[in-house]
Design a protein around this nucleic acid. Structure first.
Lengths: 161, 161
DNA sequence: CAGGATGGCCGTAAAATCGCCGGCATGTCC
DNA sequence: GGACATGCCGGCGATTTTACGGCCATCCTG
């Protein structure tokens, strides 16, 4: 267990901040049943110890003109250490790539790409993805309809133990 | 264009809040080159008009005991309106499902699942995913190594127009 | 010039922040 | 076994910082 350091209050704080990172400390304190001072201390500790990695504003993709989300399966020529590393760096450097992972299964890499429209995706795919060295095949899965986005991480598993 | 309402200052604000949603308004104002009052007004407007959907704390999955992320392709028997709807609701209700979409391509649905370990994934897969009505096939893609997570949405496309 | 939009300044109320105290549990020493 | 030392953690209160709304100045547009 990487985390016997989280008691019930910590979990409530994490859950609350996942829902609304802009909760004022007093509101957060009240919500978890604590006075502001110790509550703030806990939040700082959770930040310092890395449980909380960051706070971010979640934007409406459509409203900011990013109407198209594509999940991209990337197969590469057989991995070699340095090739894989450079490949990863290039994926990382593309701003349209919102997340990327090395995965098991059909594909080798997997990226979530966000673009304004099909035209922009075509440009990205043909000019910047397919031209990556060692890319053997790319399969694009277009999001037709979002069902659930940015769900909070479940934390129940920490309490039932 | 759904957004000729965003000028350079708005974009700077959105970019800054994507990076750090907990920036105090005074710091944010300084960063974008504005005094606090109009800066706050703009933030409120961006919230009210839905450009900013929410603010969330990003947790370290490993540290909170969620060491395994799986991208799941789900194929279903031929869609029918009401069946699809109930299927979506069930996906939505699973806390381990952090995001889910209807997609084009090989699969019909696509879900990002977060669990403590393989054992937990097995339970989820066999007890709660495969048992969903109409599920024809499920393919699991395990994340071996994250390359980039929670990347900020690119906003450059709004300025170059 | 009129009107709207937008930025800046200022005063008030609220929040964050920090030092300090006290309760409670654990451990130790006689 | 009991009294005390120690560490952990929550609460309180004072001070600094922030949020927030009202008001005015400026700029652009028609």
């Amino acid at each position: 267990m990487p985390n016997m350091n989280l008691d019930a209050l910590d979990r409530k704080i994490l859950a609350a901040l996942q829902q609304d990172a802009r909760l004022s400390n007093v509101d957060l304190a009240e919500k978890v049943g604590l006075s502001p001072s110790p509550c703030l201390r806990r939040v700082k500790r959770l930040e310092d110890e890395g449980y909380i990695r960051s706070y971010r504003a979640v934007l409406d993709r459509r409203k900011v003109g990013l109407g198209l989300t594509v999940y991209v399966d990337i197969k590469v020529e057989k991995h070699s250490a340095e090739n894989a590393a450079s490949h990863q760096r290039m994926l990382e450097a593309l701003p349209e790539v919102v997340s990327a992972h090395m995965v098991s299964g059909e594909a080798d890499f997997f990226a979530e790409v966000v673009v304004p429209d099909l035209a922009a995706y075509e440009e990205l795919l043909t000019q910047r993805l397919l031209s990556l060295p060692m890319v053997k095949d790319i399969r694009s899965n277009f999001v037709i309809r979002p069902i659930k986005t940015d769900g909070a991480l479940p934390l129940d598993h920490l309490s039932e133990g």
